[in-house]
Design a protein around this nucleic acid. Structure first.
Lengths: 236, 236
DNA sequence: CCAAAAGTGTTCGGACTACACCCATGG
DNA sequence: CCATGGGTGTAGTCCGAACACTTTTGG
């Protein structure tokens, strides 16, 4: 029994694939690379690579992302694991999907000419290898889901941001338009934003005030947006 | 490059672990088995086993569950993949977590003496092997999360159920008490339940009407409970 | 001085909460 | 006939949606 359980004939390859959504203040984009090896060399692909035996999955994801794009210190979240038998034509390979949303402008230095990575508007994606298109679709759904229930996709925002930017982000995620008065009231009513003294003046003449996340409150209030149980505080 | 990518020295074992929550109409429970092999033989554990090269992950989960408990045709959902380096002391092993919630009474036939599986009240769990306790905690969080945002954990309910049962389920999940008038109004207002003509008469003298899920409507309305974007229909 | 984006208040309707009584029936 | 759990209605409050005008300033 023990031998059967731990026999090694069923060892397999495990890959990680990283989905990086990017927000430039206006539009939601996706980072892709031109695959540098066979099979499917030259086609567009998510940032993926094999996981090593002596690293955690999270570590593999960070490493792969860095190797392929230069991006470092990006907070990624594990989404799920793909395991269709024929998903990789070369070998039996599982893939653990990671996803993140970053501020494009903040990382322009890191993604430079050394890497063949490019941002694509979400609505104009090229065709992708393997099951990567499914992965993107799934990640997009999860992003919407999360953004819908949490007033702010805070982990995923730049340090300082303006309300119009935040609104554009939501509008990009949901591909919809919102009323700025209601939006600002709703967001501010969470009490999670701290108004800064300085303004972002690049996109308008008047300028828009920056806000920062109140991280301490955010930790406590993360689950304070449930809508079906009577009293969220009752959740233990 | 190609060789490095597809080299096989990094093959590893992948296990699946199944978390089965059970609802008996009153209390929320967890199914566990007494582990039949070393290491940790004799201690309580989730239903786990190694995935084979020629099956999908979903398939492995169903197979393992069936082998260890006799349970068949249980709809399970993949939660996430655990990959700490030392999580299994014997060998480098990833574990893909699956979770489900079933109606205990409906499956009493299948889980019989042939298997050493037992239901434990969620509040009185024994100590578990490896990182299984973490897995349970995570699964419980996800269950709450899902139940909080979707008025009904429909996939997870028996075919026919009564409103008091449904309410007890929610109360079990959130370890809280709800007002039955508000609960029933809220649930029925979704328009997703179809009242049946027959009653469940085992737990009360008057009897409680059964309801069934309107599966067609449920497909369309699954996302109709968002609370942050103005108009859920606007989500494309 | 004007175009372009930022910022702000009010009204209305629907949803959520709190709360108490009657109903059906097996024993 | 009564104990037990099932089922329903209402009033008050809060929250979200719709909606338009004023402010700022770079050009």
């Amino acid at each position: 029994m023990k031998i059967a359980q731990y026999s090694s004939k069923n060892r397999m390859l495990v890959a990680v694939d990283c989905i990086i959504f990017g927000f430039d203040g206006t539009e939601l984009k996706l980072l892709l690379i031109k695959r540098g090896f066979e099979p499917e060399k030259g086609r567009w692909s998510l940032m993926g690579g094999l996981m090593k035996r002596d690293e955690t999955i999270d570590h593999a994801a960070s490493r792969v992302l860095k190797e392929l794009t230069g991006l470092e210190n990006v907070y990624m979240e594990q989404l799920c694991t793909f395991g269709e038998i024929e998903r990789d034509p070369v070998d039996r390979t599982l893939s653990v999907l990671y996803s993140s949303l970053i501020d494009i402008n903040r990382y322009t230095q890191q993604i430079n000419q050394d890497y063949h990575a490019e941002w694509f508007p979400l609505k104009k994606l090229p065709s992708l290898i393997f099951d990567h298109r499914d992965m993107v679709t799934l990640a997009q759904q999860k992003l919407r889901y999360k953004a819908a229930f949490h007033p702010i996709v805070f982990e995923l925002l730049p340090e300082k941001f303006t309300l119009p930017q935040l609104q554009h982000l939501y509008e990009g995620i949901f591909d919809t338009l919102m009323d700025k008065r209601n939006f600002s009231r709703k967001v501010l009513s969470t009490g999670l934003l701290i108004k800064q003294k300085d303004k972002e003046k690049a996109t308008s003449k008047r300028g828009a005030f920056y806000y920062k996340l109140d991280k301490r409150k955010y930790q406590t209030k993360f689950n304070a947006f449930l809508n079906f149980i009577p009293n969220p505080d009752a959740i233990r």
